[in-house]
């Protein structure tokens, strides 16, 4: 993925290495998340529904605030949350912040000069005017992207994915969607692994350099094999579902229970939200 994401962007030289690298990054992200979800941190103890709701509320706050102080305060809170949830800061820094800064940071940079307003500094020689408005708008964009990604990333890193998908049920997502999402999540890894195997097999036989056309041809052929495999997989999975009594009904067993800790978390969340909005209403920051 060339865009902003939680995945590592280690840029490999070779074409096959590059394909393998990006597939491996996705698998590694998944296994890291699974490991951290088992860690005995604070965030891990909340009911998955509370974590999901908190994430949505906080991201909503990040997106709607007009105050840089609130925005960066939330970022600090997110970092603190990571600390008490035993999510190492290096993972946040390398897995999330670096990626956001590389993408959104680069994207926001020209805005410093392009947004019209009161100039605060002229770049020597070029004569470009850095504006106050430009700086602030870059700070908003980067701050929002950073903070929202941190909250989203923290939730994912601290929650087993199937739990998070099932928690969507409480937000009114229909059962059939939750079932499909769980199944999609499961088969992403099978298809990732298949794709990885194809590229690895090709790499072991590859001598010499591929031309652009050969690379495209090979990539499309691999995607084709994956497509046929997917169609076949859908047929077989349907049989396997029928064999265990599937008749078109969707069920998802929720195994969540709200504990006092969860209600406390919700209360704290409510407090943070109202304080943030008060702050804005007073025109502070």
């Amino acid at each position: 993925m060339s865009e902003q994401s939680f995945l590592d962007h280690s840029h490999q030289r070779g074409f096959l290495e590059c394909q393998i690298g990006s597939l491996l990054a996705a698998l590694e992200h998944a296994s890291r998340a699974e490991r951290l979800a088992q860690a005995p941190g604070l965030l891990q103890r909340f009911d998955p529904r509370v974590r999901l709701i908190a994430m949505l509320v906080l991201i909503g706050l990040v997106v709607s605030t007009h105050s840089l102080t609130t925005l960066y305060g939330l970022l600090a809170a997110a970092a603190l949350m990571a600390f008490v949830s035993r999510v190492p800061l290096t993972i946040l820094a390398r897995g999330i912040w670096l990626n956001v800064l590389l993408f959104t940071g680069a994207l926001a940079l020209p805005a410093i000069f392009l947004v019209p307003g009161d100039s605060v500094f002229h770049v020597p020689l070029l004569g470009w005017a850095m504006t106050m408005q430009g700086l602030e708008s870059a700070a908003f964009l980067v701050g929002r992207a950073l903070t929202a990604a941190t909250f989203a990333g923290l939730t994912i890193l601290a929650t087993p994915w199937p739990h998070l998908l099932k928690a969507l049920r409480t937000l009114g997502v229909p059962a059939v969607m939750v079932v499909i999402l769980c199944m999609t999540y499961r088969y992403i890894f099978l298809l990732l692994q298949s794709a990885l195997d194809m590229f690895e097999a090709r790499r072991s036989r590859q001598v010499g350099r591929l031309t652009g056309a050969e690379k495209r041809h090979m990539l499309v052929a691999n995607a084709g094999v994956l497509l046929s495999k997917s169609l076949h997989l859908a047929d077989e999975v349907y049989l396997a579902m029928q064999s265990r009594g599937y008749r078109g009904e969707q069920h998802a067993l929720l195994e969540f229970r709200m504990a006092p800790l969860d209600w406390t978390a919700l209360a704290v969340l409510l407090a943070i939200t109202s304080v943030a909005f008060r702050f804005q209403a007073w025109g502070l920051g």
């Binding site: 994915w161 199937p162 769980c182 199944m183 499961r186 088969y187 999975v237």
Partner: peptide
């Protein structure tokens, strides 16, 4: 093809 759920429990 038989294990189509997201976790062993499911």
């Amino acid at each position: 093809m038989q294990l189509f759920n997201a976790s062993v429990f499911d």
